[in-house]
């Protein structure tokens, strides 16, 4: 029986903590987001833990000053507050000044169940993608979270690290490190369609694959864990064998994960059907939890499988000669 998976934030904090014990220049700044694993860090290395107040703007500028002075710095806060709240600081102090700070974003997407639009980040990929000099990483399990953290410690750069709030089952079995430089990894093989996803939604993609298989459709699942920079040429070459490519994200579609793939298709002249699945263009206030919102947004496993099956069906069997309404306004 597999061990219970750890929370991604615990994986990250434990990795940074173990390295910080040996490296006094490794610092961790949290804008009031706690964790039990962080308590040990604070107790043992109080000089390397910084609480700047609930002040995300100052946290990022402060981090830039520290890296300018040769420190290795992790900044840590809830996803919605370490992105839009301090976007200007990410752009100016880290992007324009090329400061190698790791920006750890906890609870991306709809991760904070029932908390509503102030706590959801349904736009963070679009926002961060727009900044030059940043890398965007989105782990899907313990192993990928640990390896990416280790990379951030060993080769600091301006990285935006998207951590999922819940513990997620293992996808990788010791093979993530080898895949890391490519930025993506085919985690399940298939031939009829390729589903690209990352993080929490990668697990949904795997469930969709199982569902499609029951109907005789063989879907591959590709973990696109480094959203920026995209290894466009390698990714597109990998996708050549699939008649349909699907992107699946827990973001509004404007500028997000699917957009990154769509832009690569256009830029490289790839003329292959691409189905972008994500959240509708609205804010989410309703109670009922993450799955409920995803279901209402047409992103339940069954609905995703149906939408993919529809796109795979011969044109005569489709409800219309046009594909599903792209804005998802019907949901």
């Amino acid at each position: 029986m597999q061990a219970k998976p750890k929370l991604m934030r615990d994986v990250l904090i434990e990795e940074v903590f173990s390295r910080a014990k040996r490296d006094k220049n490794l610092l961790f700044i949290s804008a009031d987001l706690g964790a039990e694993s962080l308590d040990a860090f604070r107790a043992e290395l109080p000089g390397q833990f910084i609480h700047p107040g609930i002040c995300e703007q100052n946290m990022i500028d402060l981090a830039a000053g520290l890296t300018l002075s040769g420190k290795t710095v992790f900044t840590y806060a809830m996803a919605s507050f370490i992105t839009a709240r301090c976007y200007e600081q990410l752009k100016v102090a880290l992007g324009a000044m090329k400061q190698p700070v790791t920006v750890v974003s906890v609870g991306v997407g709809l991760g904070y169940d029932d908390a509503g639009p102030t706590h959801y980040t349904t736009e963070d990929i679009a926002c961060l993608r727009a900044l030059p000099n940043v890398e965007i990483w989105s782990p899907c399990d313990e192993e990928s979270a640990r390896e990416i953290t280790s990379e951030c410690c060993e080769r600091p750069a301006f990285r935006y690290l998207r951590l999922e709030r819940p513990a997620l089952p293992a996808v990788y079995q010791g093979n993530f490190r080898a895949a890391m430089s490519a930025g993506f990894c085919e985690v399940a093989a298939g031939s009829d369609v390729a589903i690209l996803s990352s993080g929490f939604m990668l697990h949904r993609a795997l469930a969709v694959r199982d569902r499609l298989r029951m109907e005789g459709t063989d879907a591959a699942v590709i973990d696109l864990f480094r959203i920026k920079p995209l290894s466009a040429r390698a990714l597109l070459s990998q996708l050549e064998r699939y008649p349909l490519v699907v992107t699946l994200e827990e973001q509004c579609l404007a500028g997000g994960f699917g957009s990154a793939v769509a832009e690569a298709f256009v830029d490289y002249g790839v003329q292959r059907p691409l189905l972008r699945l994500g959240l509708p263009d609205r804010y989410f206030f309703e109670n009922g939890g993450r799955n409920h919102v995803l279901e209402k947004s047409g992103l339940s496993v069954d609905t995703i499988a149906e939408r993919i099956a529809e796109r795979l069906a011969p044109p005569a069997r489709r409800q219309s000669h046009l594909p599903s309404v792209p804005t998802l306004s019907s949901f």
């Binding site: 703007q57 000053g65 300018l68 420190k71 102090a93």
Partner: peptide, 25 residues
């Protein structure tokens, strides 16, 4: 030039980081 300028409100935070690093070291 020790920090970027042009957008207001960054210099004091960046300088705080520089000063904190100096204290730590």
């Amino acid at each position: 030039i020790d920090a970027i300028s042009g957008s207001l409100g960054h210099g004091l935070g960046i300088a705080s980081g520089i000063c904190l690093a100096a204290k730590q070291d």
